[in-house]
């Protein structure tokens, strides 16, 4: 078990290396440089060349790569070009937890909705609620994130006034428990928006998995042993049905962060997604590279967690 986890973590290292190479190469391959958007015709070209030389942008690519990586592993991603030369790490730190919280709210919403409904659908296939859930899933998958976000803002926030339409807190004059509740209140709409597609997917998966397991031989054995319906469902069915769901959740981690780029923009939510989009538009490469690397790490960590969890739930892969 521990050997398995350690081996998985060791595999992590070359993957991280590959990821950093890809991120660096892509940013180098992108056309233009940070000065492209600042070109002032009144300034002599040679000034830009000097600046580029000073920033090391004319050094050989491998040299630049090693310079970037060696400071990146120390948590230094350089300075933002657009945001008044503030360190990239500071900009990220401010928004990092906002995005994480949003992801957690989205995942929480996904799980508490999708799993019970999926189980219900599987136990009562072709019932009214099952058809309803199926309809909802297709709708959830078909509606783009940003569109659902706009609908939610229009109806739930502007028309009914139940939820705030943007931001993370109402003001600076709240604190303690009040602030916590206020922050949650702000996260509900973007959280649901972000979790919508996942909810739809998980519901479908859960339904088909539970249905599959309920028809299996070992469930018949459990029933033949005289186990109660509750026991058959919670002990024998659920653990088996959740195995593929866990795999899915590993990917969900990355999907949530990716989805956050759009959702945060719609709700004007100050998270990593908003920062990422702004950085791309402004060609603020230090930020783009840092975030691309962080998003990549999210996906790697998500898959690592999924693999570890997987081996906890399913004894068959423990000794591989």
């Amino acid at each position: 078990m521990y050997k398995y986890i350690i081996r998985r973590i060791l595999i992590f290292i070359p993957m991280l290396f590959a990821l950093s190479v890809v991120v660096f190469a892509l940013s180098k391959a992108a056309p233009g440089d940070p000065f492209t958007t600042m070109l002032d015709p009144n300034i002599d070209r040679s000034v830009f060349e000097e600046r580029k030389e000073a920033l090391g942008l004319n050094d050989p690519i491998p040299v630049q790569y090693f310079r970037w990586v060696s400071s990146a592993v120390q948590g230094d991603f350089g300075e933002s070009i657009v945001y008044n030369q503030r360190p990239v790490m500071d900009l990220i730190k401010v928004r990092f937890w906002n995005t994480i919280y949003l992801g957690i709210v989205a995942l929480f919403f996904t799980l508490i909705v999708a799993i019970p409904i999926g189980i219900y659908s599987a136990r009562n296939p072709y019932s009214l609620l099952d058809y309803g859930a199926t309809g909802f899933s297709f709708l959830g998958l078909a509606i783009p994130n940003f569109f659902f976000g706009l609908l939610a803002i229009y109806f739930l926030s502007i028309q009914f006034g139940w939820f705030p339409a943007q931001g993370t807190v109402s003001g600076t004059d709240v604190s303690g428990l009040e602030e916590f509740i206020d922050r949650i209140h702000h996260m509900i709409l973007p959280g649901i928006t972000l979790g919508l597609a996942g909810t739809a997917t998980y519901m479908r998966y859960m339904r088909s998995e539970v249905l599959d397991v309920l028809g299996s031989d070992y469930i018949r054995t459990a029933k033949a042993k005289g186990m109660s319906d509750r026991n058959v469902l919670y002990k024998h069915t659920l653990r088996n049905a959740l195995i593929p769901i866990i795999t899915l959740m590993g990917f969900e981690f990355g999907v949530l962060i990716g989805g956050a780029v759009i959702t945060e923009q719609v709700f004007n939510y100050p998270g990593l997604g908003t920062l990422f989009l702004d950085a791309i538009i402004n060609r603020d490469y230090p930020i783009v590279m840092a975030l691309a690397l962080i998003f990549g790490i999210f996906i790697l960590v998500g898959n690592l967690l999924a693999d570890i969890f997987y081996s906890v739930v399913d004894p068959r892969i423990r000794y591989d």
Binding site: S216, D217, T221, A224, G226, M227, H236
Partner: peptide, 27 residues
Amino acid sequence: DKQMTKVRGNDVAMIFQEPMTALNPVY
């Protein structure tokens, strides 16, 4: 149904054809 669960496995027990799949893999 509830009374029947007290009979199954207790008064009447059953063995199935396919031993490879008749046991729950995760317990």
